[in-house]
């Protein structure tokens, strides 16, 4: 089944490729061979541009026009949407919370995932089971995780308070999600929890690709466990860490379901991050103009940070090589 479908998939590709290369090779064989790969991926690139690029274009276009709540754009309005966004009393607060949320969730996730992946990479009895248990939360949708935690943290009926008061640790019920001083750290902790499976998987993939003989040699040379980790493992899995950092950064920055399900940004917007506020702006308030401006700003922030990080990571790699 798999074989036949993959060969069937390749056949037209090869046909197109040979036809194109035949057409371009006739004047000069070298240029034809060099351009063939580009021609081959051209349709995919165009498709990707259409799928990704068009909504961005549409959003950018909307963000500089007056828009009514039903998405009908009117005249160009001199960046009034951006002006209103930046002067909005909630913007700065949401931006700061978004950065705090992202840095803590991504940082916590990576700090926890590396040791977990190292443990799961060791050979021990029941390793497969342990791996499955770590991966399992991944199969549960974020919305469901959010609902379960929301129930568990309920002050009057929740499991957390019931357990704590049974252990005698709690006199009166605590409403964990009633103030941001408890709600936001809890949200971050759950954010870390749900990001671990993906992160561990990637790092584990990195660890299993390492060559055992390098480590044996280091062991024979008398390198301690920490030294082997610090000077061998860590540099060798750096490409994987980079991927995990960038992807998690993007996911977490834009993560909507957890916060929306658990607090909806309450109380008094103190757990709102940019993306939950964006949802309110667009679909509750019908402020599609400001919302599209905010989308573009968020896109810009992510793009800038990702490019900066990628550039830094690449420069590091070049200098270590």
């Amino acid at each position: 089944m798999a074989l036949s479908s993959s060969s069937a998939g390749k056949a037209p590709e090869a046909g197109v490729g040979s036809a194109k290369s035949r057409a371009t090779t006739s004047p000069n064989g070298k240029i034809g061979r060099a351009s063939a790969p580009y021609l081959l991926i051209l349709p995919s690139i165009l498709f990707a541009f259409w799928i990704i690029g068009y909504p961005i274009y549409d959003m950018a276009n909307m963000s500089v026009h007056a828009v009514n709540r039903f998405g009908k754009t009117a005249a160009f309005n001199d960046f009034a949407n951006y002006q209103r966004l930046f002067s909005h009393q909630l913007f700065i607060g949401c931006l700061i919370r978004t950065l705090v949320w992202t840095v803590f969730v991504v940082g916590g996730t990576v700090l926890l995932s590396v040791p977990i992946a190292l443990i799961l990479n060791e050979k021990f009895y029941g390793r497969t089971l342990a791996r499955i248990i770590i991966m399992l939360p991944w199969a549960v949708s974020l919305t469901m995780t959010g609902i379960v935690w929301r129930w568990s943290l309920n002050g009057q009926f929740g499991m957390v308070n019931a357990t704590l008061s049974q252990m005698g640790l709690l006199g009166a019920p605590v409403e964990w999600l009633a103030t941001s001083t408890t709600a936001f750290p809890i949200l971050i902790a759950i954010g870390i929890l749900v990001s671990i499976p993906f992160t561990v998987t990637v790092i584990l993939g990195g660890l299993s690709s390492l060559q055992a003989d390098v480590f044996e040699a280091a062991k024979i040379d008398g390198a301690s466990g920490w030294q082997r980790f610090r000077y061998l493992t860590l540099p060798l899995i750096r490409p994987f860490l980079n991927i995990v950092l960038v992807l998690n950064f993007i996911y977490v920055f834009n993560s909507f379901p957890l916060i929306w399900v658990m607090t909806q940004g309450d109380p008094a917007n103190s757990t709102d991050i940019l993306v939950t506020w964006l949802y309110k702006l667009a679909f509750r308030y019908g402020e599609l103009g400001i919302a599209s401006a905010l989308s573009i700003v968020m896109f810009g922030i992510l793009l800038a940070l990702t490019i900066t990080y990628a550039a830094l990571a690449m420069r590091n790699e070049r200098s270590t090589v």
């Binding site: 068009y54 909504p55 961005i56 549409d58 959003m59 998405g71 974020l142 954010g191 749900v194 990001s195 998690n248 993007i250 996911y251 977490v252 834009n254 993560s255 909507f256 379901p257 957890l258 993306v275 964006l278 949802y279 667009a282 679909f283 919302a291 599209s292 989308s295």
Partner: peptide, 15 residues
Amino acid sequence: MYQIKKSRVLGLLAG
């Protein structure tokens, strides 16, 4: 974590 691009999907949905 997954990203819900509600606003960007709006155009596509409409289409």
